[in-house]
Design a binder for these strands. Structure first.
Lengths: 181, 181
DNA sequence: AATATATGAATGAACG
DNA sequence: CGTTCATTCATATATT
């Protein structure tokens, strides 16, 4: 971020004999502008958010909804620290045991039972149990995908590891910006 | 990016005892963000132009050299092409507002309108809008049920205890802040 | 402390 | 529409 002014500001362009930029300069400028662009995207979004907020509350009343967090939150400032559930060892063992012998499809009633059982070993909620099984299954599957590639199957490129095309539909109907005003 | 706080005139937000902004601070922040947003739009456009020129001059095929993403790599920002739509804050607020009064099932035409409106705040497709409303409604309902048949996602307010589950975040700015109708 | 990894939680998209 | 999957985000933990 050091040099945008130096390049784009061109304070000494009057002595520049050749107005044409070299490719190197060009690349440099592009890089720096890109860096700023990244930051500025957030600024723009921030601005539009504020505009929306102002529209929502007519003539915004401060102290009611416009907290500092609400404004700054999406820029990356995490001012609210949310701690997450951490399973105890006993809970983990039970969960693992259930996961191994069980199926990857925990029904709701089963979740309740498991939660009841695990709550004897520490604070836990059904949501925690549900999430745990979801993550456990998903990550097991993914690990198997990346792990056993030696079956002569396709080898994914390292860049985009989409692993499946089925989710690649990516509806693109927003191509025309519908330039209403 | 953290310089933004400095820009907003709020360098010590971490020690801020009261997160509510005064109206004065709010106005100043909005002004400055507006100014930056204007400048940054030009920067982004500038960058796009440069990239196009570069590609034309050197016969680069897009995606091969000097794409925005490739150039952004050095910043460390994750500008990797996002395959999954992520609503911007402004879009979220609008969606929440519509959801509040819209009763959840927008017809096809309504979806189109909403999509058109939201595309002013970022790329979006009608499918995105449709999915968002579907998810929003389903998850809201599930949260209210607190557990019935099924084994899907879980309600969050089930076993909330004083220890964990303080996932308060700052949802007060999501959309249902003002008690307007 | 700074970085890397593991993993709980959140959510867009898809399935039936 | 309800449920499930896949991906991403954020934090706790491990490693240097």
């Amino acid at each position: 971020i050091r040099g945008l002014a130096g390049v784009a500001g061109h304070p000494t362009c009057d002595t520049m004999p050749e107005p044409i930029m070299t490719e190197e300069q060009m690349v440099m400028l592009a890089k720096q502008i890109s860096a700023y662009g990244s930051i500025c995207k957030q600024l723009i979004e921030m601005h539009s958010t504020i505009v929306v907020q102002q529209n929502v509350l007519h003539g915004f009343t401060p102290g009611q909804a416009l907290t500092f967090n609400s404004v700054m939150g999406f820029v990356g400032h995490k001012m609210t620290t949310r701690q997450r559930w951490t399973p105890s060892q006993a809970q983990l063992q039970i969960l693992e045991k259930i996961f191994e012998k069980g199926k990857g499809t925990p029904c709701k009633q089963r979740i309740k039972e498991i939660t009841a059982q695990l709550s004897q070993h520490g604070h836990i909620s059904e949501t925690n149990v549900y999430n745990w099984f979801q993550n456990r299954r998903a990550r097991t599957k993914r690990k198997h995908q990346t792990g056993l590639t030696g079956s002569g199957e396709y080898e994914m490129d390292n860049l985009v590891d989409s692993s499946n095309e089925k989710k690649a539909k990516f509806d693109e109907s927003s191509g025309q910006e519908t330039s209403l005003t």
